[in-house]
Computed example of a mutant assay.
Amino acid sequence: MPTLRGRHAVSLLGVGLLAAAALHHLDEVERVRTATGPLLAFALDGGVAVGLIAAGRRIADRGLSPTEEWRVARWTGFGTAFTVAAFSATVGVRVLEGRPLVEPVFPMLVAAGVGGLGGAVAGYYAVRQAADARRARDAVRTVSLVNHLLRHDLRNDLSTIHGYADLLAADDGSDHAAVVASKADEGLERIEAASAVADALLGDADRGRTDLVATVRNVLSGVDGDRSVTVETDLPETAPVAANDGVRAIVHNLVENAAEHGGPDVTVRVAVRLTDDGVALVVADDGPGLPPAARDRLSAPDERRDEAAVGSGEGVLGDSPDGTVSGLDLVAALTEAYDGSLDVGESEHGGARFAVTLPHAPVESAGSDT
């Protein structure tokens, strides 16, 4: 025996309303001795009932689970009951007022059908929205799980490589083992940095006390060897912000963008300023500047920036061929994750200027200022 599902309940409601409409209008034909009016009325209330039957068929085609189908059916029943109750209330008021009632069955059948059809549509979209939200939560959990698994497994593997490199260096004294150990250390640092970025974007970050000045100095130490780039700094002794190690990606991408796309012999000016609103990281250069389209996009609110990415065929963090917008979009996403603000403009030397303001670290917060 087939199991009754929600789609069957919706269709059965339509069949019941269609049968009630047919019986009512057949009786009207006999009473008024004409078929024109009753047929027109049947086309209206019967048509709505047929719409409910079709809605049941459409639900069957959508591949919903039994639970989801019954949720749509409950919405349908609620819509029908609500409209019938509302119509009945108006009829009751007219009765209390002593007014004559002129054929209330027909408008009640129309109201019941329209309410049921509206409930079915609302129920379907409610189910679909819940399914989309559930898939989004599952995706976030999956990414978070993969992030932690990769962090754990790769860290263990690189630590093992580093250990064997130390043994090789002790045995033959060559520089090759030292290079392997150095690369293993770099890999470990990259894993920690990538994990911090992922935690921040997924909302899993434990935002403690991170010294922005120490991070800037660490990033700039890797730029000093590039003779085509001149770096000028204006840094206080310390500037703790409420963030995690992912803030390094903000500094790295801004400095890398200026160094790589500022042209030959570019000068990059990096400053950290303490303000009442937070800690401001300002990176400016004297290169050609940022394209207007990219500037407008990065300056847009988070929702509009995501819409622009989707409309242009890019991901939320962008995926331009040269990686320029992708890195800057990561800056924008991380700044948003840290409850900060990003200001994009033109530097006084004609190049690009980025100002990222991050919240002060609470005095009692845990973390490192080094």
Rank of each mutant, 00 (worst) to 15 (best):
M108T: 11
E97C: 04
G63A: 10
A112K: 09
A60M: 11
P100C: 08
A73S: 14
A170P: 00
V72L: 15
V105P: 05
A49V: 01
S65F: 12
R151N: 06
V121A: 02
T142Y: 15
G115R: 00
I161R: 07
T76F: 05
R155T: 15
T76Y: 09
V146C: 12
R58I: 12
E68Q: 04
R155Y: 15
V140L: 10
G46P: 02
A81F: 09
L150Q: 12
G37D: 07
V102L: 13
V114D: 10
L109P: 06
D132T: 14
L64S: 10
D172Q: 04
V32D: 09
I53P: 03
G119F: 00
A133M: 12
R33T: 12
L52E: 01
W70Q: 07
A133Q: 07
V32M: 08
V32R: 14
V146Q: 08
G115D: 01
F82T: 04
L167P: 03
L64A: 13
A120G: 02
R33F: 08
L154Y: 15
V127P: 10
T34G: 14
W75P: 02
P104D: 03
D45L: 06
G77E: 00
D171G: 12
E97D: 11
A139R: 00
D138S: 12
A111N: 04
D138M: 14
R128N: 10
I161C: 13
V48Q: 00
D132C: 12
V105F: 09
G116W: 04
P104R: 08
A55M: 05
V110E: 08
G119K: 00
